[in-house]
């Protein structure tokens, strides 16, 4: 076998074996990986809507919105616990992925959770702190949430920015503000 043939045979055979091994491995692991993703999503939804038992994805190619239920409750009117909405904020260091939950009538925020972010640890990174998130709980979805620098009043739909992380605080608030009306429109259109 001359050198050229040897070269072709060597690289091609190694590539074939690699391709086979990888495809095989992917098939083997993909069930568990998909499982992990489902578990993570359910866990997040459970965290933002207490008592969540089941969910239903609303068909839309614009936003990811879940109707969240507890079908075991006796009163059918109370079975819809709320909506879990995925929204993205343009943070200081990149995109912030947020899961926000609202009441069934879209009137109030239940809470939210930061799923992914690349903000600076200790500054923008503090958007995951309960102290920051608690400020949003119970605020109205119908009015704009306002970010102020000093102490805030919930009755005015205000939240205090994290000191040293105004941009991150503002980004999260803006994303939430913009998501409510859009999500409401999609949900209503779907009914």
């Amino acid at each position: 076998m001359n050198i050229s043939t040897k070269m072709i045979v060597a690289l091609t055979i190694v590539s074939i074996i690699a391709g086979f091994a990888l495809a095989f491995a992917y098939e083997y692991f993909k069930v568990k990986i998909a499982d992990n993703a489902v578990k993570a999503l359910n866990e997040s939804i459970g965290a933002v809507i207490p008592g969540a038992i089941s969910k239903e994805l609303i068909p839309s190619d614009q936003m990811t919105i879940y109707k969240v239920y507890d079908k075991e409750l006796n009163d059918p009117a109370k079975q819809l616990l709320g909506y879990a909405i995925v929204t993205y904020a343009s943070g200081y260091q990149g995109s912030i992925k947020i899961l926000v939950s609202v009441t069934p009538d879209f009137s109030k925020i239940i809470t939210f959770r930061v799923l992914e972010h690349s903000e600076t640890p200790g500054l923008g990174g503090n958007i995951v702190n309960p102290d920051f998130i608690n400020q949003y709980e119970g605020l109205s979805c119908d009015k704009q949430i306002i970010v102020i620098k000093g102490p805030s009043k919930k009755e005015n739909n205000e939240i205090s920015a994290i000191s040293g992380a105004t941009i991150s605080s503002r980004a999260v608030t803006k994303a939430l503000n913009e998501s409510f009306q859009k999500a409401k429109a999609i949900v209503t259109a779907n009914e």
């Binding site: 091994a21 990888l22 491995a25 992917y26 692991f29 568990k32 990986i33 992990n36 993570a40």
Partner: peptide, 12 residues
């Protein structure tokens, strides 16, 4: 790739 798949499956 094998290592990455393994981590994604068992240590997400």
């Amino acid at each position: 790739t094998l290592a990455d798949l393994f981590l994604k499956a068992y240590f997400p």
